[in-house]
Amino acid sequence: IPHSVAKEPGGCCKCRNSELKRMARRNVLITGCSSGIGLALAVKMAKDEQKRFKVYATMRNLAKKQPLEEAAGHRLGKTLEIKQLDVCDEQSIKTCVNSIPDRRIDVLVSNAGMGLIGPIECQTIEEMKTVMDTNFFGLVRLLKEILPDMKRRKSGHIVIISSVMGIQGILFNDVYAASKFAVEGFCESLAIQALKFKLQLSLIEPGPVVTEFERKVFEDGMKMDLSAADEETAEMFTNIYLKNYKQIFQSLGQSAEDVAEIILAENPPFRHQTNTLYTPMTTLKYADPNGDLPIDIFYKMVFQHDKIFSASLNFIKLLRWRSRKSFDLGKPSQ
């Protein structure tokens, strides 16, 4: 039938195809999009060539939206909208979700978080509570608002940006690791219920990621008042931990864009560690049910074989540099 005389109830074929495409587009809500992984993922999904997503990129402070606006370019206002959302404020979450047509969120990416490093003697309980409130209870607040709609529709994908420190604690990351352990246990429990409602749940576990988030954590650590710690602990934090911090990120670190690529993968597993260079570290935990092996190895790496550890990081850094260089020349090395 000629397009001009098509009589189907839904209108002309072109209009119906356009409407079907619009309906098939998935609404994605991402938290913590002012920088880092959140910004990279929001832009990646908004620029999807198949236009599968309408991205609602959120952040606590809209005064920090300029980098996202610049990165989004002409997609801004089309496949990407910026909204205010504070994961520590229930009303802020409700207002944001209510502003989305039909409150329909097909994919939720819980990415907002904060870090904290240093000796616990030098951290206040209020600082610790803020980390837990953001990293753990922030996720809980989001799900209390969004999960009932997903369960009712029996459709939805929940993506949580966790960390390898949700699997294995690291020196001077006690509180941050605790918050991520809480996230992992919460999601492992919730995943069983999610299956019943045909929902997907994915824990993304990056290792070191070079972002503004990590730079701020490092800078805060450099400025920390260590007077409450004993001399040996203060020395350990300054001359061992902080000294190796940058080297670890330069050797093992990923970019935010690398992590964003993983999230777009088809049928992601429940847990996914994004950094294969870091995987041997976390594998130690599964190799010994008693838990002694990883602690013993980390202790020896840091305090007994620190020169070998440093040399290994430099070697990895060199290999990665050579790999990138050859890739840029169009001749990938083995």
Rank of each mutant, 00 (worst) to 15 (best):
T58S: 15
T58P: 06
T58C: 12
T58W: 12
T58Y: 11
M59I: 08
M59V: 08
M59T: 05
M59K: 08
M59H: 07
R60I: 10
R60Y: 11
N61C: 05
N61W: 02
N61P: 00
L62S: 10
L62G: 12
A63V: 02
A63L: 14
K64V: 01
K64E: 06
K64G: 01
K65V: 00
Q66C: 00
Q66W: 03
Q66I: 05
Q66T: 12
Q66K: 10
Q66N: 06
P67W: 09
P67V: 09
L68K: 01
L68I: 00
E69H: 04
E69I: 10
E69A: 07
E69D: 06
E70H: 01
E70K: 12
E70F: 00
A71L: 07
A72F: 01
A72V: 02
A72T: 01
A72S: 03
G73R: 04
G73W: 11
H74V: 10
H74R: 09
H74K: 13
H74A: 10
R75H: 13
R75K: 02
R75W: 05
R75C: 15
R75N: 12
L76Q: 02
G77D: 09
G77S: 10
K78T: 08
T79R: 02
T79Q: 09
T79N: 14
T79P: 01
T79K: 00
T79E: 11
T79L: 09
T79A: 07
T79S: 15
T79I: 04
L80A: 06
L80E: 03
L80C: 14
L80M: 15
E81Y: 12
I82G: 03
I82M: 05
I82N: 05
I82V: 14
I82C: 05
I82K: 04
I82A: 04
I82Y: 03
I82L: 06
K83W: 08
K83A: 13
K83M: 14
K83P: 07
K83Q: 13
K83R: 15
K83V: 14
K83G: 09
Q84E: 15
Q84S: 13
Q84K: 15
L85Y: 09
L85V: 10
L85E: 06
L85M: 15
L85K: 07
L85R: 05
D86Y: 10
D86Q: 03
D86N: 14
D86F: 09
V87N: 02
V87L: 07
V87G: 02
V87Q: 03
V87P: 01
C88S: 02
C88W: 00
D89R: 05
D89L: 07
D89E: 11
E90I: 12
Q91T: 14
Q91F: 00
Q91H: 11
S92Y: 13
S92D: 11
S92G: 12
I93S: 04
K94A: 09
K94D: 02
K94Y: 01
T95V: 13
T95W: 00
T95Q: 11
T95E: 14
T95A: 14
T95K: 10
C96L: 04
C96S: 01
C96A: 11
V97P: 11
V97A: 11
V97S: 10
V97Q: 08
V97M: 13
V97T: 09
N98W: 02
N98F: 06
N98E: 15
